[in-house]
Amino acid sequence: MPQSEQITPHVQNGVDTGTGPARPGVDAVLARMRALDAVLPPGDGVAVFNRVYLAVTEEVDRRIDTGRFPDADAAVTLDVRFAERYLDAVDPVCDDGRPPACWRPLLQFRRHPGVRPLQFALAGVNAHIGHDLALAVVDACRGLGCEPADLEDEFDRVGDLLGSLEERVREELMPGPDLLQIADPLTHLLGSWSLERARDATWTAARALWALRRLPDVAEEFTQRLDTAVGFAGRMMLTPLPGLVRCAPAR
């Protein structure tokens, strides 16, 4: 399906028609993540990312339930649209065509013995934030009938939680001191990517896509170029590093 059609599944002339199926809540996307976790081998690249993303989505759910998001409806909508893009890209049950370019490197290298779990996890973070989050903001704005500026608080709060996700990834999956010398190429490779810069670029991309919503051809081209660029960065992050012995993370 063309990317622009993915952005506007039930929209005509910039107006949400409301004719599509009802969107599931956070519980539904959590159930899909848990189902993936149950069936994927622990060392699978998608499984590595799925575990850390599941943890952060559970935290978002807890914060919504405890009133940490002032606009709970907006937070749920953004969180669900965001998670669905990842799930639809990697879940074989929902596979109805070629996945977005940003997810292809992870899907291609998910079982490569020369790619470490840290690379898998951060490549997933790169794809999900660099591409999926921008489109999810547009999806949410259409569904809620609002502007991106109206979702900026929710975007920032979700972004803060994703920052904790990156910290968790690095703490749990970074090789220990005994592997420091051998891991120097890994440290150099992944040190060139910044979550904060990716978030800033994503917010700019979301605003640009919203401004282009009545120019579908231009929006389509912009989205494809964004997808390609994020996919290229992900491919670099997944460069196999010979000599590293990959150990499957504990479940």
Rank of each mutant, 00 (worst) to 15 (best):
D217P: 08
E166Q: 13
V80G: 03
E84T: 04
L244E: 13
A211E: 00
W203Q: 00
E196W: 06
P148E: 08
R142W: 03
P185S: 11
D71E: 15
A206V: 12
D227I: 02
A83F: 01
G67S: 08
R235W: 04
L244N: 05
T187I: 13
G143H: 14
D184E: 15
A35W: 14
R111L: 00
G145V: 01
A208P: 02
L87I: 12
R23T: 07
P42D: 15
D73C: 08
R34E: 15
V76K: 02
A74P: 01
E220D: 14
D227K: 03
Q108M: 02
L238H: 02
P249C: 05
G18I: 15
A74R: 15
D37L: 12
D91L: 12
R23M: 09
N126Y: 01
E154W: 03
L189H: 11
A121K: 00
R81S: 13
A47I: 00
D95V: 03
L78R: 05
A211L: 06
P177Q: 01
C102T: 10
R225H: 12
E221V: 07
D79H: 09
E167I: 11
G159P: 01
L162Q: 05
A149D: 15
I182V: 12
L190I: 09
A72I: 03
L133A: 09
A136N: 09
D217I: 09
T202L: 08
P117E: 00
D79V: 14
R142K: 03
D200A: 12
L209Q: 05
V46M: 01
A206W: 01
S164Y: 13
F155I: 02
A28E: 13
P99C: 09
D73E: 15
D156N: 10
R68T: 07
P41Q: 05
T19R: 08
P177F: 02
G45S: 07
T228G: 09
P177R: 07
L179A: 14
R23W: 09
V90K: 02
A121F: 04
H131V: 08
L244T: 11
D153P: 05
E152D: 07
N50Q: 01
T57V: 15
V93M: 08
M33S: 10
T204E: 09
V90W: 01
E5Q: 07
W103A: 01
F69G: 00
D73S: 06
E58K: 05
P240N: 06
R104Y: 05
A198R: 06
L226S: 10
T17V: 12
G67E: 07
H10I: 03
